[in-house]
């Protein structure tokens, strides 16, 4: 009796085990699979090189997007920040910009006044002198402009020589000359020495020597960071000529800036070529 009961219990137990196996086998396999996958993920997450491999492309995408969208996303914030800084640090901003802006404004006003003064002088001279009346009659009979006749009498400014000289060393980058006189390298050296002498002798600091004049001959200096231009001009320099020259100098400097990577300071022929190309026009 007991044996039979025991066998029945055992049979039921085996059935339960088989039933459990049948019902839970799939779950067990899934659990094992999940455990393996979690282990793999853990490994990928904790191994830098594996993680980088996965994350880098996403970060790069985001960075590219950020680069493209930066002005839209952060432009307003940056503008606001700058506005705030300027508003609350006015003294510092003024200190930093004053010398630059002041210099520019002073130069601009001086030139405008000079041009205005020239125009007024010319008008007065022509209007109230005998010569003015003569010019008026000449213009009336010849049909040409009165101002053209007046300006024919003035010694026209002519660029005689231009030098592009390296700051400090005084070595010549290039030159343009209508009539070559002395050795250009030596002139470049001496002009640099004179410029340095004036700055040191008068402790002019940030200020630069702008021109040297003797009778009707002028040497105008235009300084840039790495080099300066010395322009020797004969005749009467008018404000309009100065204006034209300044414009050409800026165009020339712009050309040099663009070519700077291709041209080095030993390419004197290249520099001289540019000088002729830009400044010969002014003499025409």
């Amino acid at each position: 009796m007991r044996d039979r009961e025991h066998k029945e219990v055992m049979g039921k137990s085996n059935l339960m085990i088989k039933l459990r196996e049948l019902l839970l086998e799939e779950d067990r396999i899934n659990q094992e699979k999940l455990t393996n996958e979690v282990q793999l993920l853990k490994d990928e997450f904790n191994t830098r090189s594996k993680l980088e491999h996965k994350i880098d492309p996403i970060i790069e995408d985001h960075l590219d997007k950020l680069k493209t969208d930066f002005p839209t996303l952060f432009g307003p914030v940056i503008t606001e920040t700058i506005k705030y800084q300027i508003k609350h640090s006015q003294d510092e901003v003024v200190d930093a910009l004053y010398p630059i802006i002041g210099k520019l404004i002073r130069k601009y006003i001086a030139r405008e006044i000079e041009m205005l003064s020239e125009k007024v002088d010319a008008q007065l001279d022509i209007a109230f002198s005998w010569k003015g009346w003569i010019n008026r009659f000449k213009a009336w009979f010849s049909g040409s402009k009165e101002t053209d006749i007046v300006f024919q009498g003035v010694a026209e400014p002519v660029i005689e020589e231009i030098f592009v000289i390296e700051q400090n060393s005084g070595l010549l980058y290039g030159s343009y000359s209508r009539n070559k006189t002395m050795d250009q390298d030596m002139i470049a050296g001496m002009l640099t020495a004179i410029k340095s002498f004036v700055v040191e002798a008068f402790k002019s600091g940030e200020q630069e020597l702008e021109s040297i004049e003797y009778e009707s001959y002028h040497i105008l200096f235009k300084s840039f960071k790495k080099y300066f231009l010395a322009v020797a001009v004969s005749g009467t320099i008018t404000a309009s000529f100065k204006d034209k020259l300044d414009g050409t100098v800026l165009n020339f400097a712009n050309k040099l800036r663009k070519q700077a990577q291709e041209v080095n300071n030993t390419d004197t022929d290249v520099f001289s070529g540019y000088l002729e190309q830009y400044f010969k026009e002014i003499n025409k």
Partner: peptide, 10 residues
């Protein structure tokens, strides 16, 4: 001697 004269020497 103005120091600037020596600048850029090789």
């Amino acid at each position: 001697v103005p120091q600037a004269y020596k600048m850029g020497a090789h």
